[in-house]
Design a protein around this nucleic acid. Sequence first.
DNA 1: ATGCCGGGCGAAGCCCGA
Length: 261
Amino acid sequence: MIKIATWNVNSIKARLPNALAWLESAAPDVVLLQETKCLEENFPDMEIGDLGYNTAVVGQKSYNGVAILSKHPLTVEHRALPGDESDEQARYVEAIVECGERPVRVASIYLPNGNPTDTEKFPYKLGWMERLVDHAQGLMDLEECFVLGGDYNVCPTDADVYDPEGWRDDALCHPETRRRFRTLVNLGLTDAFRTLHPELHRYSFWDYQAGRWQKDEGLRIDHLLLSPQAADRLAEAEIDKAPRGRPKASDHTPVWCTLED
DNA sequence: ATGCCGGGCGAAGCCCGA
């Protein structure tokens, strides 16, 4: 069994005690991190390495930043999403994790937020999603076991939003955003959590403001998308709400799944 | 609701997130 998690930590430095505690208790084999918000040379490799994790880090100063942690050996395949050499934002890292005879390809994705929708941020998001579709199609052609996980900044349906009417025109729920997310999933990918949890209004993010956590008014925007070869092995998927309730919490909480051997 | 909260940067207050 291999346990794979995704978590937007909102700064790995600010979150380090919480993150280390969660790694110890949840003991995932592979962790896909987003919004690490630090340069590679400032990533806390030592502290995380002490818990038995190898790391692959793509960082930039102050913003964005993604990483892959793995208890198994990992080989980096991509340090940026292909398709636009001019895109310098640290939002994508992909690696192959060697789990014995069964390697798994994983990517940590921090998809652009896209707000406000009347600025260049929104077309950047949509273009990024189109590049992701193109890249994912190439991965599908390999017919491998892979998991594309991360903060997608997409609520796939109104069932993934506490207030669909209020969020109708937001970049996370916009019809053009959802259309591209459907195109991605329709390549043949499986949303691990939704597949095993038909219940509606389960969230992975709650804004720090306005008591959203206390009122359970959140969004489901962190996803684990599985290739057919991975989906065939899917055993469990959960949203672990505990880290969101702790002091000094990230505004996102981990989402994880397990794949059978 | 213009902000609310929280992090980065850098040493006050602005930018950014979702």
